[in-house]
Amino acid sequence: MAVPARVLALGAACLVALPPGAAGTALRPAATTPPHASPLAPIGPPRSVAHSGQDDVVALTAPPGALVPPGRPGAPTDRPSTVARAGRPGPNALAGRAGPAAPARLARSGRLAARSCAEPPLVWGNVPRTREYLEAITKCLEKSWSAHFARAGLAFEKPVVRFYEEPEQRVCGVRWPSSASAFYCTERGTLVFLLTGDWIEDRTDLYPLKVAAHEYGHHVQSLTGIRRHYEARIRADHAHHAELGRRYELQADCLSGVFIGSVWGSLSRSGDDWAAVVETTRATGDDDERRSHGKGANRAYWLKRGFTAVSPAACDTWKAAPSRVS
Protein backbone atom coordinates (compact mmCIF):
# COMPACT_ATOMS: atom_id res chain seq x y z
CA MET A 1 0.00 0.00 0.00
CA ALA A 2 1.01 3.57 0.23
CA VAL A 3 3.44 3.82 3.09
CA PRO A 4 6.41 6.20 3.26
CA ALA A 5 9.72 4.72 2.13
CA ARG A 6 8.39 1.58 0.61
CA VAL A 7 7.37 0.04 -2.68
CA LEU A 8 3.75 -0.39 -3.58
CA ALA A 9 2.70 -2.85 -6.23
CA LEU A 10 -0.69 -1.97 -7.61
CA GLY A 11 -3.23 -4.25 -9.11
CA ALA A 12 -4.59 -5.43 -12.35
CA ALA A 13 -5.98 -2.23 -13.62
CA CYS A 14 -2.83 -0.24 -13.52
CA LEU A 15 0.30 -2.22 -13.81
CA VAL A 16 1.20 -5.25 -15.71
CA ALA A 17 2.68 -8.41 -14.35
CA LEU A 18 6.17 -9.22 -15.48
CA PRO A 19 6.86 -12.38 -17.42
CA PRO A 20 7.54 -15.42 -15.21
CA GLY A 21 11.05 -15.38 -13.84
CA ALA A 22 11.69 -11.80 -14.92
CA ALA A 23 11.69 -10.30 -11.45
CA GLY A 24 15.11 -9.73 -10.03
CA THR A 25 16.89 -9.65 -13.37
CA ALA A 26 19.63 -7.06 -13.14
CA LEU A 27 19.67 -4.92 -16.25
CA ARG A 28 20.63 -1.40 -17.09
CA PRO A 29 17.58 0.78 -17.62
CA ALA A 30 16.97 1.86 -21.19
CA ALA A 31 18.42 5.35 -21.41
CA THR A 32 15.79 7.35 -19.65
CA THR A 33 14.54 10.73 -20.71
CA PRO A 34 11.85 13.11 -19.61
CA PRO A 35 8.38 12.37 -20.96
CA HIS A 36 7.92 13.38 -24.60
CA ALA A 37 4.79 13.77 -26.66
CA SER A 38 3.83 10.55 -28.41
CA PRO A 39 0.63 8.61 -29.04
CA LEU A 40 -0.83 5.36 -27.80
CA ALA A 41 -0.93 1.86 -29.19
CA PRO A 42 -1.95 -1.77 -28.56
CA ILE A 43 -2.45 -2.98 -25.06
CA GLY A 44 -3.76 -5.97 -23.09
CA PRO A 45 -5.46 -6.57 -19.75
CA PRO A 46 -3.58 -6.80 -16.47
CA ARG A 47 -2.84 -10.04 -14.74
CA SER A 48 -2.24 -9.50 -11.08
CA VAL A 49 -1.01 -7.09 -8.50
CA ALA A 50 1.33 -7.40 -5.61
CA HIS A 51 2.20 -5.10 -2.75
CA SER A 52 5.76 -5.11 -1.52
CA GLY A 53 6.75 -3.08 1.49
CA GLN A 54 10.03 -1.33 0.84
CA ASP A 55 10.17 2.13 -0.64
CA ASP A 56 7.52 4.34 -2.14
CA VAL A 57 6.68 2.54 -5.33
CA VAL A 58 3.24 1.97 -6.70
CA ALA A 59 3.06 -0.80 -9.29
CA LEU A 60 0.33 -2.29 -11.42
CA THR A 61 -0.33 -5.44 -13.41
CA ALA A 62 -2.54 -6.24 -16.37
CA PRO A 63 -4.03 -9.33 -17.97
CA PRO A 64 -3.05 -10.27 -21.50
CA GLY A 65 -5.13 -9.49 -24.53
CA ALA A 66 -7.38 -6.49 -24.56
CA LEU A 67 -9.69 -5.08 -27.19
CA VAL A 68 -9.32 -2.02 -29.32
CA PRO A 69 -11.84 0.77 -28.65
CA PRO A 70 -13.19 3.37 -31.24
CA GLY A 71 -15.42 7.49 -30.49
CA ARG A 72 -16.55 8.33 -27.11
CA PRO A 73 -19.52 6.36 -25.78
CA GLY A 74 -22.54 7.86 -24.17
CA ALA A 75 -23.00 11.18 -22.53
CA PRO A 76 -20.57 13.12 -20.41
CA THR A 77 -18.87 11.33 -21.28
CA ASP A 78 14.35 8.07 -11.17
CA ARG A 79 14.45 11.08 -13.24
CA PRO A 80 14.92 11.48 -16.93
CA SER A 81 17.97 9.52 -17.94
CA THR A 82 19.15 9.10 -14.37
CA VAL A 83 18.12 8.20 -10.88
CA ALA A 84 16.75 10.99 -8.74
CA ARG A 85 19.56 13.01 -7.26
CA ALA A 86 19.79 13.69 -3.59
CA GLY A 87 18.32 17.02 -2.72
CA ARG A 88 15.77 17.01 -5.50
CA PRO A 89 12.47 18.20 -4.01
CA GLY A 90 10.10 15.25 -4.28
CA PRO A 91 6.31 15.42 -4.54
CA ASN A 92 5.92 15.12 -0.78
CA ALA A 93 8.00 18.26 -0.32
CA LEU A 94 5.94 19.99 -2.98
CA ALA A 95 2.77 18.94 -1.19
CA GLY A 96 4.08 20.53 1.97
CA ARG A 97 4.61 23.83 0.17
CA ALA A 98 1.14 23.58 -1.35
CA GLY A 99 -0.41 23.53 2.11
CA PRO A 100 -3.27 21.56 3.68
CA ALA A 101 -5.87 23.20 1.44
CA ALA A 102 -4.40 21.73 -1.75
CA PRO A 103 -6.63 18.60 -1.86
CA ALA A 104 -9.76 20.76 -1.54
CA ARG A 105 -8.49 23.16 -4.22
CA LEU A 106 -8.00 20.23 -6.58
CA ALA A 107 -11.55 19.07 -5.88
CA ARG A 108 -12.85 22.57 -6.73
CA SER A 109 -10.63 22.97 -9.79
CA GLY A 110 -13.32 22.05 -12.31
CA ARG A 111 -13.09 19.92 -15.44
CA LEU A 112 -9.82 18.94 -17.04
CA ALA A 113 -9.65 20.98 -20.24
CA ALA A 114 -10.13 19.09 -23.50
CA ARG A 115 -6.79 18.52 -25.19
CA SER A 116 -5.40 16.69 -28.16
CA CYS A 117 -3.33 13.58 -27.52
CA ALA A 118 -2.12 11.71 -30.58
CA GLU A 119 -2.00 7.99 -29.86
CA PRO A 120 0.92 6.43 -31.75
CA PRO A 121 1.15 2.77 -32.74
CA LEU A 122 2.90 0.38 -30.39
CA VAL A 123 4.40 -1.37 -33.38
CA TRP A 124 5.61 0.23 -36.61
CA GLY A 125 6.91 -1.90 -39.46
CA ASN A 126 7.13 -4.93 -37.15
CA VAL A 127 9.35 -2.89 -34.82
CA PRO A 128 8.11 -2.45 -31.22
CA ARG A 129 7.77 1.22 -30.27
CA THR A 130 6.63 0.84 -26.68
CA ARG A 131 8.99 3.50 -25.39
CA GLU A 132 7.91 6.02 -28.00
CA TYR A 133 4.30 5.27 -27.16
CA LEU A 134 4.78 5.79 -23.43
CA GLU A 135 6.86 8.93 -23.97
CA ALA A 136 4.03 10.37 -26.03
CA ILE A 137 1.36 9.50 -23.47
CA THR A 138 3.30 10.78 -20.47
CA LYS A 139 3.89 14.03 -22.37
CA CYS A 140 0.13 14.34 -22.92
CA LEU A 141 -0.46 13.69 -19.22
CA GLU A 142 2.13 16.32 -18.27
CA LYS A 143 0.56 18.97 -20.49
CA SER A 144 -2.97 18.28 -19.24
CA TRP A 145 -2.24 18.14 -15.53
CA SER A 146 0.32 20.98 -15.48
CA ALA A 147 -2.18 23.30 -17.18
CA HIS A 148 -4.91 22.20 -14.78
CA PHE A 149 -2.70 22.84 -11.76
CA ALA A 150 -1.82 26.28 -13.10
CA ARG A 151 -5.50 27.21 -13.43
CA ALA A 152 -6.14 25.96 -9.89
CA GLY A 153 -3.18 27.90 -8.48
CA LEU A 154 -1.40 24.72 -7.42
CA ALA A 155 2.34 24.08 -7.63
CA PHE A 156 3.30 21.50 -10.25
CA GLU A 157 6.45 19.49 -10.84
CA LYS A 158 6.65 16.93 -13.60
CA PRO A 159 7.65 13.41 -12.60
CA VAL A 160 10.84 11.67 -13.59
CA VAL A 161 10.18 8.89 -16.11
CA ARG A 162 12.37 5.79 -16.40
CA PHE A 163 12.13 2.92 -18.88
CA TYR A 164 13.51 -0.60 -18.56
CA GLU A 165 13.79 -3.43 -21.05
CA GLU A 166 13.76 -5.87 -18.13
CA PRO A 167 13.28 -5.48 -14.38
CA GLU A 168 16.35 -4.77 -12.29
CA GLN A 169 17.08 -6.04 -8.82
CA ARG A 170 16.60 -2.55 -7.42
CA VAL A 171 14.88 0.62 -8.60
CA CYS A 172 14.28 3.92 -6.81
CA GLY A 173 16.51 2.64 -4.02
CA VAL A 174 14.37 -0.45 -3.30
CA ARG A 175 13.78 -3.94 -4.64
CA TRP A 176 11.82 -4.08 -7.88
CA PRO A 177 8.18 -4.78 -6.88
CA SER A 178 7.21 -8.39 -7.50
CA SER A 179 5.31 -8.95 -10.76
CA ALA A 180 5.17 -5.23 -11.48
CA SER A 181 5.48 -3.75 -14.95
CA ALA A 182 4.54 -0.14 -14.18
CA PHE A 183 4.72 1.76 -10.92
CA TYR A 184 5.27 5.08 -9.19
CA CYS A 185 8.09 5.78 -6.73
CA THR A 186 6.41 8.21 -4.37
CA GLU A 187 9.44 9.50 -2.50
CA ARG A 188 11.30 10.28 -5.71
CA GLY A 189 8.34 11.32 -7.86
CA THR A 190 9.33 8.77 -10.50
CA LEU A 191 7.26 6.79 -12.99
CA VAL A 192 8.81 3.45 -13.93
CA PHE A 193 7.71 1.49 -16.99
CA LEU A 194 8.79 -1.92 -18.22
CA LEU A 195 8.89 -1.85 -22.02
CA THR A 196 8.07 -5.54 -22.38
CA GLY A 197 5.37 -7.90 -21.19
CA ASP A 198 1.68 -8.68 -21.74
CA TRP A 199 0.63 -5.32 -20.41
CA ILE A 200 2.02 -3.46 -23.42
CA GLU A 201 3.46 -5.71 -26.14
CA ASP A 202 1.30 -6.49 -29.19
CA ARG A 203 -1.74 -4.73 -27.73
CA THR A 204 -4.27 -2.73 -29.66
CA ASP A 205 -6.52 -1.64 -26.80
CA LEU A 206 -6.41 1.33 -24.42
CA TYR A 207 -5.00 -0.59 -21.49
CA PRO A 208 -1.42 0.78 -21.72
CA LEU A 209 -2.80 4.30 -21.81
CA LYS A 210 -5.02 3.62 -18.83
CA VAL A 211 -2.07 2.20 -16.88
CA ALA A 212 0.11 5.23 -17.60
CA ALA A 213 -2.75 7.57 -16.60
CA HIS A 214 -3.31 5.63 -13.37
CA GLU A 215 0.35 5.90 -12.38
CA TYR A 216 0.32 9.60 -13.21
CA GLY A 217 -2.73 9.84 -10.97
CA HIS A 218 -0.51 8.80 -8.08
CA HIS A 219 1.80 11.69 -8.94
CA VAL A 220 -1.18 14.05 -8.79
CA GLN A 221 -2.06 12.61 -5.38
CA SER A 222 1.47 13.28 -4.15
CA LEU A 223 1.65 16.82 -5.52
CA THR A 224 -1.63 17.83 -3.90
CA GLY A 225 -0.86 16.33 -0.49
CA ILE A 226 -3.49 13.60 -0.82
CA ARG A 227 -0.88 10.91 -0.32
CA ARG A 228 0.47 12.67 2.76
CA HIS A 229 -3.02 12.75 4.31
CA TYR A 230 -3.55 9.12 3.34
CA GLU A 231 -0.35 8.10 5.13
CA ALA A 232 -1.37 10.07 8.22
CA ARG A 233 -4.72 8.27 8.32
CA ILE A 234 -3.01 4.90 8.00
CA ARG A 235 -0.80 5.69 10.99
CA ALA A 236 -3.84 6.71 13.03
CA ASP A 237 -6.21 3.95 11.93
CA HIS A 238 -4.48 0.59 11.57
CA ALA A 239 -7.79 -1.26 11.62
CA HIS A 240 -8.78 0.22 8.26
CA HIS A 241 -5.36 0.08 6.64
CA ALA A 242 -6.52 -2.10 3.73
CA GLU A 243 -9.66 -0.07 3.04
CA LEU A 244 -7.71 3.19 3.04
CA GLY A 245 -5.27 1.67 0.55
CA ARG A 246 -8.13 0.76 -1.76
CA ARG A 247 -9.56 4.27 -1.52
CA TYR A 248 -6.13 5.56 -2.57
CA GLU A 249 -5.86 3.17 -5.53
CA LEU A 250 -9.44 3.64 -6.69
CA GLN A 251 -8.92 7.39 -6.71
CA ALA A 252 -6.00 6.88 -9.10
CA ASP A 253 -8.31 4.77 -11.29
CA CYS A 254 -10.81 7.63 -11.29
CA LEU A 255 -8.14 10.22 -12.14
CA SER A 256 -7.05 8.06 -15.06
CA GLY A 257 -10.64 8.17 -16.29
CA VAL A 258 -10.65 11.97 -15.95
CA PHE A 259 -7.62 12.22 -18.23
CA ILE A 260 -8.94 9.76 -20.80
CA GLY A 261 -12.23 11.66 -20.88
CA SER A 262 -10.41 14.95 -21.47
CA VAL A 263 -8.53 13.66 -24.54
CA TRP A 264 -11.17 11.28 -25.85
CA GLY A 265 -12.19 13.53 -28.71
CA SER A 266 -8.66 13.38 -30.14
CA LEU A 267 -8.26 9.61 -29.90
CA SER A 268 -9.11 7.51 -32.93
CA ARG A 269 -11.16 5.20 -30.75
CA SER A 270 -14.76 4.03 -30.59
CA GLY A 271 -17.27 3.23 -27.89
CA ASP A 272 -16.23 -0.41 -28.27
CA ASP A 273 -12.67 0.55 -27.36
CA TRP A 274 -13.87 2.29 -24.22
CA ALA A 275 -16.07 -0.67 -23.27
CA ALA A 276 -13.06 -2.94 -23.77
CA VAL A 277 -10.76 -1.03 -21.40
CA VAL A 278 -13.54 -0.87 -18.81
CA GLU A 279 -13.91 -4.65 -18.97
CA THR A 280 -10.14 -5.13 -18.82
CA THR A 281 -10.08 -2.94 -15.71
CA ARG A 282 -12.94 -4.95 -14.23
CA ALA A 283 -10.96 -8.14 -14.87
CA THR A 284 -8.03 -6.78 -12.85
CA GLY A 285 -10.05 -6.38 -9.68
CA ASP A 286 -9.13 -7.96 -6.35
CA ASP A 287 -9.74 -11.62 -5.67
CA ASP A 288 -10.29 -13.41 -2.37
CA GLU A 289 -6.58 -13.41 -1.54
CA ARG A 290 -5.66 -9.91 -2.68
CA ARG A 291 -7.58 -6.88 -1.41
CA SER A 292 -5.40 -3.99 -2.50
CA HIS A 293 -7.13 -2.19 -5.40
CA GLY A 294 -10.79 -2.96 -5.05
CA LYS A 295 -13.21 -5.42 -6.63
CA GLY A 296 -13.46 -5.41 -10.40
CA ALA A 297 -16.89 -3.78 -10.32
CA ASN A 298 -15.58 -0.91 -8.19
CA ARG A 299 -12.47 -0.40 -10.29
CA ALA A 300 -14.69 -0.14 -13.36
CA TYR A 301 -17.11 2.16 -11.51
CA TRP A 302 -14.46 4.71 -10.54
CA LEU A 303 -12.80 4.63 -13.98
CA LYS A 304 -16.16 5.35 -15.64
CA ARG A 305 -17.04 7.99 -13.06
CA GLY A 306 -13.88 9.96 -13.84
CA PHE A 307 -14.34 9.52 -17.59
CA THR A 308 -17.91 10.80 -17.48
CA ALA A 309 -17.27 13.80 -15.20
CA VAL A 310 -13.83 14.73 -16.60
CA SER A 311 -13.25 16.39 -13.22
CA PRO A 312 -11.17 15.49 -10.14
CA ALA A 313 -14.21 16.44 -8.05
CA ALA A 314 -15.80 13.13 -9.07
CA CYS A 315 -12.89 11.20 -7.56
CA ASP A 316 -13.47 11.68 -3.83
CA THR A 317 -13.15 8.03 -2.87
CA TRP A 318 -12.40 9.09 0.72
CA LYS A 319 -16.05 9.90 1.40
CA ALA A 320 -17.50 7.02 -0.59
CA ALA A 321 -19.51 4.27 1.10
CA PRO A 322 -17.46 1.20 2.10
CA SER A 323 -19.32 -0.84 -0.51
CA ARG A 324 -17.88 1.40 -3.25
CA VAL A 325 -14.30 0.81 -2.15
CA SER A 326 -14.49 -2.87 -1.28
Results as ranks from 00 to 15, higher is better:
A102V: 03
F163K: 02
H148D: 08
V220G: 01
K295L: 15
P159N: 03
V123N: 06
D253F: 06
G285N: 05
Q251W: 01
D237I: 05
A309W: 00
G261C: 03
T33I: 04
A23L: 09
L191H: 07
C117Y: 05
P4N: 02
T224G: 04
A101Q: 15
V277F: 00
G87D: 07
I226G: 01
L8E: 07
E249D: 14
L122V: 08
F149S: 09
R105T: 10
T25H: 04
A150V: 07
T317R: 01
R282Y: 07
A62M: 12
R85D: 09
A283V: 01
L267H: 01
S179F: 09
D205K: 02
G306Q: 00
V192I: 12
A275P: 00
P45D: 12
L18E: 04
H218I: 05
R108M: 05
G306S: 03
R299M: 14
A232P: 01
V220A: 01
R228T: 15
Y301S: 03
C172E: 08
T196D: 13
A98H: 01
P39S: 11
F183P: 00
C172I: 02
F183L: 15
A252G: 04
R235S: 12
A180T: 12
A107V: 06
A22W: 13
L206S: 02
V278D: 01
Y207D: 06
I234S: 04
A84T: 14
A23M: 00
I200E: 00
L267T: 07
T281V: 15
E279W: 01
P20H: 02
L27V: 14
R162A: 15
A26L: 10
S81A: 14
L10I: 11
G53K: 09
W264G: 11
S52M: 09
A212D: 02
A75R: 14
R115H: 10
P20E: 09
S38R: 13
H51T: 13
L223T: 10
A314S: 15
A113Q: 13
P100F: 02
W176E: 06
G125L: 14
C140G: 09
D78F: 06
G294I: 07
G225F: 03
V192S: 03
G217F: 08
F307Y: 14
T284I: 04
A22Y: 04
F156C: 06
L206Q: 06
G96L: 12
A50E: 15
A101V: 11
G99W: 03
H51G: 13
A136R: 14
P69S: 10
